[in-house]
Write a protein that binds this DNA or RNA. Structure first.
Length: 417
DNA sequence: GCTTGCCTCGAGTCTTGA
DNA sequence: TCAAGACTCGAGGCAAGC
């Protein structure tokens, strides 16, 4: 909530489709916010007033400041130093022109093109392309929760469990070189079961179609669980993310995303259906497929087959936005809105087996709605069920389920009002 | 050579106060 | 209305350990 009307106004301005784009005349960079633009000016184009770090240390190549040198020459090898061997960026990415010092860096960089985000936060379903990013996220965003949950001694779901499947064997060779990554191998859709219906939300693998920042932004919005998880959520959820990330190297192919969202509204894209129904290249997916309707449906043990897939991950991964599907659209928004399609009302797709999991199971899931759908329910009195009860729920769910939490999605707050 | 994780920087967003 | 600070994430560099 914004405490002042002006704050809301300025916030909304950031999402306005026709909002101003700040264009740096000197280097051509664009910024969506004045703040970003001004920061860029300060960092890159402001002559130093004094003999500070950003002042006297002039770039030998003409850049005004050291900071600009860092920014503008980041892709160039460092200048040779006296007596030191010249380091070369010998390894180049096949999909872009970036060069790196080591092959490892190239591989890691490939995530930028594949958009793969294989590391799922078990607490908020946010996904990351790198393990250390997840680690950092857990430390910064969930350290407090972890501390609170620590005495409960149920650390399993909280472990930074990668939902990582085998990395694509063609990280840099798929598609045409030097082109944006749009042609992903089929397997890339398959990190999670698609369950016949899906949304970009809650970390399902359509995010793999997304690149860079938008992917992350989508993740934030779609999860309904921002990394600023004490901050309002639907502010982000309602944002026209396409316009938020309309420039920059990690900007998003708008048409791709919109068509994807339209696909979601009209039904499952054929390739998604195929991906969910016919391909089971990963053990996890196979397990899930079985658990959700396959031959092994109803087998409570299925969910425990994959050590890399906790129940929390299951619930998180399959969570999806129900708004467009159920016609529940808070705030009177139209049936489909790119802004709203990432709404905060999320539901999971537990396998049928989850209903048979006894309460004492180590892999509890949110309460189920009819038809086997699991709802992350609108606020209900959340009575603790004894010590450690909090940990009986997947962290992401329990977190969302806290009706009094500041991070409560606005949908829920709307319910409360 | 590979994996892992830390450090750092740039950028976007949110919040708060003048 | 504007500015500033805080927060978070993406990404590259790099060291340590195997």
């Amino acid at each position: 909530m914004f405490q002042q009307k002006e704050h809301l106004k300025s916030h909304l301005q950031a999402h306005h489709a026709n909002r101003q784009v700040f264009h740096c005349q000197e280097c051509g960079k664009q910024y969506s916010t004045q703040l970003g633009y001004r920061r860029h000016l300060l960092a890159a184009h402001t002559p130093a007033p004094s003999a500070t770090l950003s002042g006297e240390l002039r770039c030998q190549e003409g850049a005004p400041t050291l900071l600009e040198q860092i920014g503008s020459h980041g892709d160039r090898p460092p200048p040779p130093t006296e007596g030191a061997a010249v380091r070369e960026r010998k390894y180049s990415c096949e999909r872009c022109d970036r060069r790196f010092y080591t092959r490892k860096d190239v591989r890691r960089h490939a995530v930028v093109h594949t958009g793969r985000r294989d590391f799922l936060c078990p607490r908020c379903a946010q996904r990351f392309g790198r393990r250390d990013h997840l680690t950092r996220h857990l430390k910064k965003s969930h350290a407090q929760e972890a501390a609170l949950a620590a005495p409960a001694a149920t650390p399993a779901p909280a472990a930074p469990g990668p939902v990582k499947e085998e990395l694509s064997p063609v990280p840099c060779s798929m598609g045409t070189s030097k082109e944006p990554a749009e042609n992903f191998p089929m397997d890339m859709y398959g990190g999670y079961p698609l369950q016949g219906m899906s949304s970009p939300g809650m970390g399902h693998h359509h995010q793999s179609l997304m690149q860079g920042s938008l992917s992350t932004a989508m993740g934030r919005q779609m999860t309904g669980q921002s990394p600023h998880h004490h901050l309002p959520q639907t502010q982000q959820q309602q944002q026209p993310y396409m316009t938020r990330y309309q420039h920059g190297s990690t900007s998003y192919p708008r048409t791709d995303m919109e068509s994807f969202l339209m696909d979601l509204q009209s039904g499952l894209p054929p390739h998604m259906t195929a991906a969910s129904s016919s391909t089971s290249s990963s053990p996890q997916r196979e397990v899930l497929s079985e658990a959700q309707g396959g031959p092994g449906a109803g087998d409570p043990q299925l969910l425990s087959r994959s050590p890399a897939l906790s129940s929390a991950e299951l619930s998180c991964a399959a969570n999806m936005d129900l708004g467009p599907l159920l016609g529940f659209l808070p705030f009177g928004l139209p049936p489909y809105s790119a802004h709203m399609s990432m709404g905060g009302l999320v539901m999971g797709y537990p396998s049928t087996s989850t209903s048979t999991v006894p309460p004492s199971s180590s892999s509890p899931l949110p309460s189920q709605g009819p038809g086997g759908l699991t709802f992350l329910q609108p606020p209900q009195p959340h009575a603790p069920q004894g010590p450690g009860a909090h940990n009986q729920l997947p962290q992401g769910f329990s977190h969302l389920g806290m009706s009094t939490s500041p991070s409560l999605p606005r949908y829920y707050q709307a319910f409360q009002q």
